[in-house]
Measured scan of single mutants.
Amino acid sequence: MVQRGSKVRILRPESYWFQDVGTVASVDQSGIKYPVIVRFEKVNYSGINTNNFAEDELVEVEA
């Protein structure tokens, strides 16, 4: 279970941040499909630095 402030590695192959490390900004408990919002240092092609992920697409590298 990841929690706010954890450092996580992204396992979603189609993601711009695949294999990159980001910080968990928040975790939604309402039961949505992609409840974990992760914030990154670098921006993607659209200038965005956050994205939603499912918990099984993340691996915690640092608490």
Score class of each variant (00 low, 15 high):
M1A: 12
M1Q: 13
M1P: 11
V2D: 04
V2F: 15
V2K: 05
S6Y: 06
S6H: 07
S6L: 07
K7T: 08
K7C: 13
K7H: 08
V8G: 02
V8L: 00
R9G: 04
I10A: 01
I10F: 04
I10V: 13
I10E: 00
I10H: 02
L11K: 04
L11V: 05
L11G: 02
L11Y: 05
L11H: 03
L11A: 03
L11E: 05
R12F: 05
P13T: 11
P13E: 12
E14T: 14
E14Q: 10
S15D: 04
S15K: 02
Y16C: 07
Y16R: 02
W17S: 01
F18Y: 13
Q19D: 10
Q19K: 09
D20C: 14
D20E: 13
D20L: 12
V21F: 07
V21E: 04
V21Y: 06
G22F: 07
G22M: 05
G22W: 08
V24N: 02
V24F: 03
V24A: 02
A25M: 15
V27M: 06
V27D: 01
V27Y: 10
D28S: 10
Q29W: 11
Q29S: 12
S30Q: 07
G31M: 09
G31N: 15
G31H: 10
I32Q: 10
I32K: 09
I32P: 06
I32M: 10
K33V: 07
K33Y: 07
K33P: 14
Y34N: 06
Y34H: 09
P35V: 12
V36C: 05
R39I: 14
F40P: 00
F40S: 00
F40C: 03
E41T: 11
E41W: 09
E41A: 10
E41G: 07
K42P: 01
N44R: 04
N44K: 06
Y45V: 12
Y45I: 12
S46K: 13
G47L: 02
I48D: 13
N49I: 05
N49C: 14
T50N: 04
T50Q: 12
T50P: 00
T50M: 11
T50F: 14
T50H: 10
N52K: 07
F53W: 03
E55V: 14
D56K: 06
D56I: 08
D56M: 06
D56P: 04
E57N: 01
E57V: 02
L58I: 12
L58F: 05
V59E: 15
V59S: 08
V59A: 11
E60L: 15
E62C: 13
E62G: 11
E62V: 11
E62H: 12
E62Q: 11
A63H: 12
